[in-house]
């Protein structure tokens, strides 16, 4: 298997300054870019995120929450971030769509290249980033509105064209929820079960046609049956989207992910916790033949 850094078109984009975050013309240029890209074969791995030496420090913290994190995430892959609690997996994830910007004073150094463009570059607007990179949270967080309005909110605010009923139906179908809710679209989303609420949140995220979906322990509040449904859904969504998932459930990471990053946490002399990646590789290798003994201890259940 040959891994290449990024395909030539993305490199051109970087050189020509034609980048994904340039306002309204953006969608058109991205479409053309994809149309002109050389046909992707199985042996070519397109890099979506290239994280280089990332360090994140929260305001008033004396030590960084994560430090020296470098790895790449590929297109149409599920990348799992695993590791013990408090090791900075969520912090890492929230950097990928700049949700950490919402905490004023958070300091991010290093680089995250998204399709070759610096996500934290001076001309990049966090709002535009989040339109391309969606997020699903740990606890289902539907809006206190109808199921229909939950889906329609995203497309409306980003000014999506087209028939809203159609957009809503497509998103709910993609979220594997349509058959269950098609007769009660006007009902309040809070009346759904936890698993349905989480699939609604995924469908809501799909409705704005993102490129990447970030998932922060999406199944931790759900029962095994709902979890199974969401895992099936993720494997299906992989065909069209790239997914990064934080999970505490190692079996889940083993079942669904292509690549896995294993995080550990280290304490400094003042007990400040700093997370870092000790191993990043194919999921199969991480779980069967890890290079680092800490990874082995964790995945076999001797630690954490």
């Amino acid at each position: 298997m040959i891994d290449i850094e990024r395909d030539p078109q993305t490199a051109d984009e970087k050189a020509g300054g034609e980048t994904p975050f340039r306002g309204m013309g953006e969608t058109a240029s991205m479409d053309t870019a994809q149309a002109q890209a050389p046909e992707v074969t199985e042996t070519v791995r397109e890099v979506i995120f290239d994280v280089k030496e990332l360090q994140v420090t929260y305001p008033n913290a004396s030590a960084p929450a994560v430090d020296k994190i470098s790895f790449e995430m590929g297109k149409n892959e599920i990348t799992a971030l695993i590791g013990p609690s408090g090791c900075g997996k969520s912090t890492m994830l929230r950097c990928l769509n700049r949700m950490n910007d919402l905490i004023v004073g958070t300091n991010v150094t290093g680089q995250i290249l998204y399709h070759g463009e610096d996500l934290y570059g001076p001309n990049v607007d966090a709002v535009q980033v989040r339109k391309r990179i969606g997020m699903v949270f740990q606890k289902p967080n539907p809006f206190p509105k109808s199921i229909y309005e939950n889906i329609a909110f995203g497309p409306r605010i980003i000014g999506m064209e087209g028939d809203m009923d159609q957009i809503v139906e497509t998103a709910l179908r993609r979220g594997a929820l349509w058959d269950e809710v098609k007769d009660r679209l006007k009902d309040n989303a809070f009346g759904m079960s936890g698993g349905q609420q989480q699939r609604l949140c995924i469908a809501r995220c799909l409705a704005v046609a993102p490129d990447v979906i970030l998932m922060d322990e999406p199944c931790s509040a759900l029962d095994p049956i709902s979890t199974g449904k969401i895992e099936d859904l993720m494997i299906e969504l992989k065909q069209d989207y790239s997914i990064v998932i934080v999970t505490h459930n190692m079996q889940q990471a083993a079942r669904i992910s292509d690549k896995t990053a294993f995080f550990v946490v280290s304490l400094d002399e003042n007990d400040n916790r700093t997370g870092t990646v000790v191993e990043f590789d194919d999921t199969e290798k991480i779980f069967t033949n890890p290079a680092d003994e800490r990874t082995e201890a964790y995945v076999t259940g001797k630690m954490g």
Binding site: M99, R130, K131, F137, N141, P144, F153, I157, V208
Partner: peptide, 22 residues
């Protein structure tokens, strides 16, 4: 809850859109 604000912002809503519409 702040999860509503985060959910809205994560969809690409601006702060103003989040406050006014959610």
């Amino acid at each position: 809850p702040s999860s509503i604000r985060e959910g809205s912002m994560a969809l690409g809503a601006t702060k103003w859109q989040t406050i006014w519409r959610q």
